[in-house]
């Protein structure tokens, strides 16, 4: 009874204290930004190609490792704040391009063979690729570990030490306290959304993509090279996955490790399904929803109202299940997509 009163007290505290509420909202936005970044590549690829890319998380993990390596290699740890951020953004661009290239190769050489087959075969193929890629990275990481000291950096520790001091810790503005890194995350999230939205709605290629999403045959009959569109979208989706890894590398909650692949993949699935398969708008809204619920869950855990440590993961999959029961198409899903095998 007393326990319940305490929870009620905390809740009251949250909603009667705007500064606490705003702090939780900012954290929610930051989490939502990360979710947008890890999920939108998956959405783009699924929306056009009906391919559920199980290697998506592996791409993010590769992005994170490569970013860590690059940033250490250029010695970012010793640079000033502005310089580090510039390097960071350049690294992000590089990783985007590298992973886009990887995605292109994968689409052209492997996935393209299976478009004619039921979707399960693309799931199987990308799953196999994911297993292989993840184990390959583990090999590499352990190998570096074996030769410790011979190389410039050890891979087995997260790359947190490269985070500039200005981005560590928290800042108080008035009564509101927020983590510095969250500002960068929210900015990147906004940039991601704007960039993808512009690509889809303001470019000729984006128009082709949207036409192809709706009716592949009709698009082809109008002279649109749908195959090439597939390749480009797969490349962009893979690139975004990799770029997301760059910011995850700096976020203390995620950081770099081989299991990051699965840790990214499963929430990304949830976001994509909750938002509605193939709907970019849905992905953005679902990211916000999940990010906010995640932030409030974390808050509840911090206040001691909930003592269960896995609360955020638990809630993410809880949202998935509840959404599929109540509204199987997700928030903005389209009838017919994802129904077949």
């Amino acid at each position: 009874m007393i326990e319940h009163l305490l929870i009620l007290g905390d809740l009251l505290d949250l909603f009667t204290s705007p500064s606490r509420l705003i702090a939780v909202l900012i954290e929610g936005l930051a989490k939502a930004s990360l979710y947008v970044m890890i999920a939108s590549g998956l959405t783009l690829i699924f929306g056009l190609m009906d391919v559920i890319n199980f290697a998506h998380g592996a791409f993010t993990m590769y992005g994170a490792y490569m970013a860590g390596g690059l940033i250490l290699a250029v010695g970012a740890a010793e640079m000033g704040f502005a310089m580090v951020v510039v390097v960071f953004l350049l690294v992000m661009l590089t990783i985007f391009l590298v992973l886009a290239l990887v995605g292109t190769v994968m689409e052209v050489s492997l996935i393209r063979r299976l478009y004619e087959y039921p979707p399960i075969f693309q799931i199987l193929l990308t799953f196999g690729i994911a297993i292989t890629l993840e184990e390959f990275m583990r090999m590499f990481v352990e190998f570096q570990g074996i030769n410790n000291g011979q190389y410039r950096f050890g891979w087995e520790t997260p790359r947190l030490e490269t985070v500039p001091t200005a981005l560590r810790g928290a800042t108080d503005i008035g009564l509101v306290r927020f983590e510095n890194i969250h500002v960068l995350e929210i900015l990147l999230g906004v940039v991601t959304i704007v960039a993808i939205w512009t690509f889809l709605n303001r470019t000729r290629y984006g128009l082709f993509v949207r036409a192809g999403v709706e009716d592949e045959e009709m698009a082809a009959a109008l002279g649109i090279n749908v195959k090439q569109t597939f390749t480009v979208v797969f490349a962009i989706g893979s690139g975004i996955a990799g770029a997301a890894g760059v910011i995850l590398m700096w976020d203390p909650l995620w950081s770099v490790s081989v299991p990051l692949a699965l840790a990214v993949l499963l929430p990304a699935f949830v976001i994509v399904i909750v938002g509605g398969l193939g709907s970019f708008k849905g992905t953005v809204v679902a990211s916000l929803l999940v990010g906010m619920i995640d932030a409030f869950g974390t808050w509840a855990f911090q206040t001691g109202a909930i003592t269960f440590t896995g609360i955020d993961d638990m809630m993410i999959f809880g949202i998935l299940v509840v959404m599929l029961i109540l509204q199987p198409r997700g928030l903005f899903g389209v009838e017919g997509q994802g129904d077949h095998g």
């Binding site: 559920i52 979707p119 499963l266 699935f269 949830v270 399904i273 398969l277 896995g310 993961d313 638990m314 999959f317 809880g318 998935l320 299940v321 599929l324 029961i325 199987p328 994802g338 129904d339 077949h340 095998g341």
Partner: peptide, 21 residues
Amino acid sequence: RLSGVYFAMITLGFAEIMYVA
């Protein structure tokens, strides 16, 4: 009540909840 990807995902969701637990 679901099929295809949705069925796969909801069963995965239940299993993951048990995993987290």
